[in-house]
Design a protein around this nucleic acid. Structure first.
Length: 111
DNA sequence: TTTCCGGCTGATT
DNA sequence: GAATCAGCCGGAA
């Protein structure tokens, strides 16, 4: 791997940080922006690997294509934590950990 | 180095 | 809408 070439990881993190508060983005969205529309799973893997250390990255604003908090985390309460963070940003999350992408989907970039 | 799995997505059936 | 297939890139074994 060349270190002078921007990896997917770096690009993904950069885009995730550009997600405005009160909005959520999908893995595919970020992946597409990073250059690979099918690499959504990589985005998930990256965010999970980051952990809370990279707190400057709003990983909690990343949900899957259905608006579901697909985060796996190391604890079963991680989703509840993410839900609270989103609710605090005026993002409605129901009991199923589902977000209404029609309303909060981040479509201010490619859409 | 190779191989396999995975927090996904889009297209097709 | 649900099920299936293939492609994407990274990390662990």
């Amino acid at each position: 791997m060349s270190k002078d070439s921007p990896n997917f990881r770096d690009l993904v993190l950069d885009f995730v940080q550009q997600v405005p508060a009160g909005k959520v983005a999908t893995y595919g969205q970020i992946a597409a922006l990073a250059g690979s529309p099918r690499a959504g799973r990589i985005v998930g893997g990256i965010l999970s690997s980051l952990g809370m250390e990279e707190s400057h990255i709003p990983w909690w604003r990343i949900v899957n294509r259905h608006g579901y908090l697909s985060i796996k985390g190391h604890s079963a309460d991680i989703k509840d934590f993410q839900r609270e963070l989103l609710l605090r940003e005026n993002v409605q999350v129901n009991d199923e950990y589902l977000v209404d992408l029609r309303q909060f989907g981040w479509q201010g970039l490619s859409f």
